[in-house]
Computed example of a mutant assay.
Amino acid sequence: MKFSDYCKAVATFIERAEGMDAVGKALGHSSPEITRRYYVQREAVVDFRQVLGVVAP
């Protein structure tokens, strides 16, 4: 796996929990369009919660 895969997975989890604005702020993007287009995945996402130590809600 590449680092970018982890970044996209975490961004997707943040988006689902807190919304697109939260992801953009966390990543320091000036435009939510950049976040949506390049970081938040719209299709199936590999579940990295166990690797990251996050407990499922």
Rank of each mutant, 00 (worst) to 15 (best):
D21M: 14
A17I: 10
P32W: 05
A9T: 13
A17G: 06
E33Y: 03
Y6H: 11
R49G: 07
S30R: 13
V45N: 00
V55I: 09
A44T: 07
L27K: 13
A17H: 13
H29T: 04
T35N: 12
M1V: 07
K8C: 11
E15K: 01
G19Q: 11
G53I: 00
T35R: 06
A22W: 04
V55S: 08
V45H: 04
F48Y: 15
V46H: 10
Y38H: 11
G28L: 09
M20Q: 15
A17M: 11
A56S: 12
F48I: 10
T35H: 06
V23M: 10
L27N: 05
A22E: 02
S30G: 10
G53W: 07
I14N: 02
G19N: 10
A11L: 03
L27W: 10
K8H: 02
C7S: 04
V10C: 14
S4N: 06
F13V: 02
G53T: 13
I14K: 02
R36E: 12
A26S: 14
G19H: 10
T12Q: 00
M20T: 15
Q50M: 06
D5H: 10
H29P: 11
F13L: 11
L52N: 00
Y6L: 14
T12C: 10
E15A: 12
A56K: 08
K2M: 02
R37A: 11
F13R: 07
K25N: 11
V54P: 00
T12V: 11
T35P: 14
A44F: 03
G24E: 05
V55D: 05
S4I: 12
R16A: 08
M1D: 00
R37K: 15
G28D: 11
S31Y: 12
Y39D: 08
A9I: 09
V54Y: 04
F3Y: 06
Q50V: 13
V40C: 01
V40N: 01
A11Q: 03
R37I: 13
I14G: 03
P32H: 02
A26M: 08
I34T: 14
S31P: 01
A11Y: 09
T12P: 01
T12K: 03
A26V: 08
T12H: 08
I34A: 05
L52E: 03
K25L: 03
E43I: 05
V51Q: 14
T35C: 12
T12E: 04
G24T: 15
M1P: 00
P57N: 04
V45S: 06
S4G: 08
P32K: 13
V55E: 09
R16V: 07
T12L: 00
R36Y: 12
G19R: 09
F13G: 07
V10F: 10
V55K: 07
A56D: 13
S30M: 09
S31Q: 08
R16H: 09
Y6P: 07
H29C: 13
A11P: 02
V46T: 11
A44Q: 05
I34M: 12
M20F: 02
V46W: 04
V40Q: 02
I14W: 07
A56P: 13
E33S: 14
E15C: 01
S31I: 07
V54G: 02
V40Y: 00
V10K: 01
A44I: 03
R42D: 08
A17L: 15
S30K: 15
A22Y: 06
R37P: 10
H29F: 15
V46N: 00
R42E: 09
P32T: 08
V45E: 01
